[in-house]
Structures are given as structure tokens and as C-alpha cells.
């Protein structure tokens, strides 16, 4: 096994081009488990810890460019206003120690359906900045997850950053686990209201081979909110609308039975989470509307 220690981003890209089988390691919170448990022996490790810009973020007028290695604990502390969904998801990641090391780039690189960041990235409409010596491309999060632990990165590409639209409305993330902390999701759900566009977006974790959006549910809710004039009135959608939204979210999942939970339970729980997060975000939307100064 080789250990590559690029001192700069350019060196990292060059190394990845030269050794495409080298596995990037930043927080190490996925990869080191696989090495410690003898599940994986990469030809080379590509250490990204010395590349400081990966741990930085830039807040623009409409988006946040979030470095791939910004630790979850920093996201929780500093980006709660701009990226509320992701900040809530970050707070549910593993343990404080892991949140101090792990970042969104790792979740994306591993592309496990259980990664906590994915539902929030899907719901907010993130784009992934994938870079190689050949250049930079932006991958829409909707196109990023290809299969169980497979993503759209080319062998010579690294994730430089994730571009997330700054929240224009309330967002929520909730995850079901059988322990009250430090638990991998049985299933997870992210919901973002986008009042500027009068749409909603969702993300489902741990309930399909990849993280997925519940598009039919989004379309249904977007239409129902428009038809009922809810964006203007602030009136909460009727319980029947919430129930249908929940049903459609559950239907969007394609879960399996495993040691963490059954497929039927995952569907059931996703419905509950969809209904609750809709309630919370809509409540927040109404309050925001009434007292915009108190943000």
C-alpha cells in the first residue's frame, strides 16, 4: 500500500491522475473502518488532509461553496442559517468525534445509501464540483448516485466542493435509528421548502439502493400548495394533503429487510417523517412570514 501526501490541490489532482486506483482519505471515518476490519486493501491512500481549501467554505449571494472536507461540526455551528437541512443532518452524524473529522465529500465519495448528508443535498438541489487534471465539471446531485456505493465520479476525479443553494425557506431533516445517538439510519428524510420558486424538494436515505428524491410526492405537494394558495395565505395544507404526501414519499422508497429494520417499517417510518417534517417546515414558514426580522 502506498501513502500519497499531496501538499496542494494541484498535486492531489496530479496524483489521482497518475494513480486512479488510489483511494482518497480525508476524515477517514468510512475508509479506516474498512481497513481496520480488513474489508479493503487499496493500492494507495491519497491523503487530502494537507489541502486546507477543502476545509473552507465561501458564502456567495445565492450559494454556499462548501469544501469537501469541511467537518460536520463546522457545518452545524456555522452554516445553520444558510444550510439548515444540511446542518440538521450534520448534527445526526455518528458521534461528536466523527463530526469533527467527517465531511460531505466523504459521504459523496462513499455514496452509501445510509450517508446522512444525502437527503439534505437532494432536498436542497446541490451540485458537486468534480475536478481532475482534465478540468472541472459540475454534477447535479440528482445525477450523482448511480448504485449501491457507486457514484458518477471518473477514476481521476476528486470532489473539490459541493455547491448548495442558500435556503430560501425552511428545511428539515429527520432520521430513524434504534438508538438515540451514534446510529446509522434505518431510514432518513429531508424536506426543503423553496418559497422563491414555490416548489418543494425531498431526499430519502437508507431506503433504496441509492439516496433518492420522492419526485411524485414533490410534484403532488408543489401542486397542492399552489392550488390551495398556501404560499400566500400561510395556511397549513389539509391533513389529507399531508397524508397523501406521506403516502407518496413512502411509495418512492425501495427498501430492503436488513439487520437495521424491515422494508415495511422503513416505508411506514418514511411516511411518518414526511408528514412531520412537512408540519415543522410549514409552521416555520408561517412564523418566518409573520416575523421576518426575527430570523
Amino acid at each position: 500500500m502506498d501513502f500519497l501526501r499531496p501538499a496542494s490541490w494541484q498535486e492531489a489532482l496530479a496524483a489521482k491522475a497518475e494513480y486512479p486506483t488510489a483511494v482518497p482519505i480525508a476524515g477517514g471515518t468510512d475508509l479506516m473502518v474498512e481497513i481496520n476490519f480488513d474489508h479493503r486493501r487499496p493500492d494507495a491512500l491519497l491523503d487530502l488532509n494537507r489541502i486546507t481549501e477543502l476545509r473552507e467554505w465561501e458564502t456567495g449571494r445565492q450559494t454556499v461553496r462548501l469544501g469537501a472536507s469541511v467537518p460536520y461540526s463546522r457545518i452545524m455551528e456555522h452554516l445553520r442559517a444558510e444550510l439548515p437541512g444540511l446542518a440538521q443532518a450534520a448534527h445526526t452524524v455518528a458521534s461528536p468525534q466523527i463530526r469533527n473529522r467527517g465531511g460531505v465529500g466523504g459521504n459523496l465519495g462513499t455514496a452509501s445509501p445510509a450517508g446522512d448528508a444525502h437527503p439534505a443535498l437532494l432536498a436542497s438541489g446541490a451540485r458537486i464540483e468534480a475536478v481532475s487534471v482534465r478540468g472541472t465539471r459540475m454534477i447535479d446531485v440528482d445525477d450523482f448516485y448511480l448504485g449501491v456505493k457507486r457514484n458518477a465520479l471518473a477514476p481521476d476525479e476528486l470532489i473539490r466542493a459541493v455547491h448548495l443553494p442558500k435556503a430560501t425557506g425552511p428545511q428539515a431533516f429527520a432520521k430513524v435509528g434504534t438508538r438515540n445517538a451514534m446510529v446509522i439510519a434505518v431510514c432518513a428524510f429531508g424536506l426543503a421548502l423553496h418559497p422563491d420558486r414555490r416548489t418543494v424538494r425531498t431526499g430519502i436515505g437508507s431506503a433504496a439502493p441509492t439516496p433518492v428524491r420522492a419526485r411524485v410526492a414533490e410534484d403532488f405537494l408543489t401542486a397542492a400548495l399552489a392550488d390551495g394558495g398556501h404560499w400566500d395565505s400561510g395556511r397549513p395544507p389539509a391533513p389529507s394533503v399531508a397524508a397523501e404526501f406521506a403516502r407518496l414519499v413512502a411509495g418512492a422508497a425501495n427498501p430492503i429487510d436488513d439487520v437495521r429494520g424491515t422494508a415495511a417499517y422503513r416505508r411506514h417510518a418514511l411516511g411518518v417523517l414526511a408528514r412531520r417534517t412537512l408540519g415543522w417546515t410549514w409552521q416555520a414558514y408561517r412564523e418566518q412570514d409573520r416575523s421576518p426580522a426575527c430570523a
Binding site: A174, G177, W280
Partner: peptide
């Protein structure tokens, strides 16, 4: 549910 934010009392 604890930190996983699954209920606010519901």
C-alpha cells in the same frame, strides 16, 4: 429518537 430529530412531541 434523540439527536435524530424524529419527533417534536408528536
Amino acid at each position: 429518537g434523540g439527536l435524530s430529530n424524529t419527533t417534536h412531541g408528536e
